[in-house]
Design a protein around this nucleic acid. Structure first.
Lengths: 192, 192
DNA sequence: CTTACCATGTAAGGCGTTACATGATTCA
DNA sequence: TGAATCATGTAACGCCTTACATGGTAAG
């Protein structure tokens, strides 16, 4: 079964919108795509070479090659390959939240520690929120120009919806754990 | 620094609650933990050997060894190691949703395909929902017995909250894409 | 007696991260 | 001129998945 390498598909997807260098691809990964996919140079460059070898992309130097830019372009074969993957149903949707994992084993460390983990998680989410809100705003305003934006917006909305859910959960979870703390404090200081 | 191997920690976490065989660990991974962590036999067994080698767990045969069971027990060193990891802040929370990825590049395939992906995603979520609801119910009823359950419940609540958010998003996203379909239909059949 | 499940493991190979190595250009 | 950023890559190493290989036991 095909079981395509995901990074092949992600890069081809990016190249289907525009020509890019490896460096620029990395930037996309670290900004736009970071909410649901990641990759390092150590995987991007070899993957690009692979795509060229297989005829799914071509590589050329910049016209006025001041910088040592290598610009990658998707080929028709590349588009076909991308289509194939896009048509197939998604196989793997997975979440790897270390925070959740630590919480799951939280009894070992107690309520105070667990709350600290949730706080850290919450802070991270709250810090990202403005970017997502900004992106959503921008995208809503230029949806008409290019269909690409609409699909991008869809993923941003996904992020916003789940982030709001996360924040609600943080509040409730901390409330639940806070009860514990008070209980144990009451237990200790009955006479106060 | 340490950058502990996660699977070490997950397995130690499970062993901190109860003695287990590799097979049973795998079952936990496929049920309780599957929402935020996964592992195959090919990684579980070698990891267990590693834990024993490093003195973080011990291994013994079953008393009445009808089956070839090998039962693993966490050691004090193992508990220390686990504590260490639990105390440290979570470094990596990541989401790898292929559905989102395909949607992001959705322009290539058009609204109809995109809707199909969302439908598949929605179906998966709806199928899992009852299990989560059941688990939450059960856990709420036995929270008093053992603190372990409380932390488990927290993660289940996380799942429920996010799943509800996902379902809302599915509805809205499909509505947005459906507009497109009608537009294009109107465009094509103006004379009808 | 046969199916499903219990139970443990290994080998090959892929994928990806981290760290390293290098050098150009732009801007203050 | 020094710092930040642009820009490309490789090597070592670790981790995990898949597929394979093997055999016991319980239940119908």
């Amino acid at each position: 079964m095909a079981t395509e390498k995901k990074l092949d598909c992600v890069i081809l997807g990016l190249l289907s919108h525009e020509e890019l260098t490896g460096y620029e691809i990395k930037k996309r990964m670290d900004t736009t795509l970071k909410y649901f996919w990641g990759a390092s140079y150590g995987s991007i460059y070899p993957t690009l070479s692979g795509l060229v070898e297989r005829g799914l992309a071509t590589k050329r130097g910049d016209a006025d090659n001041k910088r040592n830019k290598l610009i990658y372009t998707i080929t028709n074969e590349g588009r076909d390959y991308l289509q194939q993957w896009l048509k197939a149903p998604a196989e793997k949707d997975e979440l790897r939240y270390e925070t959740l994992l630590k919480l799951f084993f939280g009894k070992e460390e107690g309520a105070r520690q667990a709350i600290a983990h949730i706080d850290a998680f919450q802070e991270k989410i709250e810090k990202e929120m403005p970017y997502l809100l900004g992106a959503a705003e921008t995208l809503r305003n230029c949806i008409a120009e290019d269909d690409t934006h609409k699909y991008y917006l869809l993923t941003v909305e996904f992020g916003l919806k789940t982030y709001r859910a996360y924040l609600e959960w943080c509040k409730e979870a901390k409330n639940m754990l806070a009860e514990d703390l008070q209980e144990s404090r009451k237990g200790r200081n009955e006479t106060c």
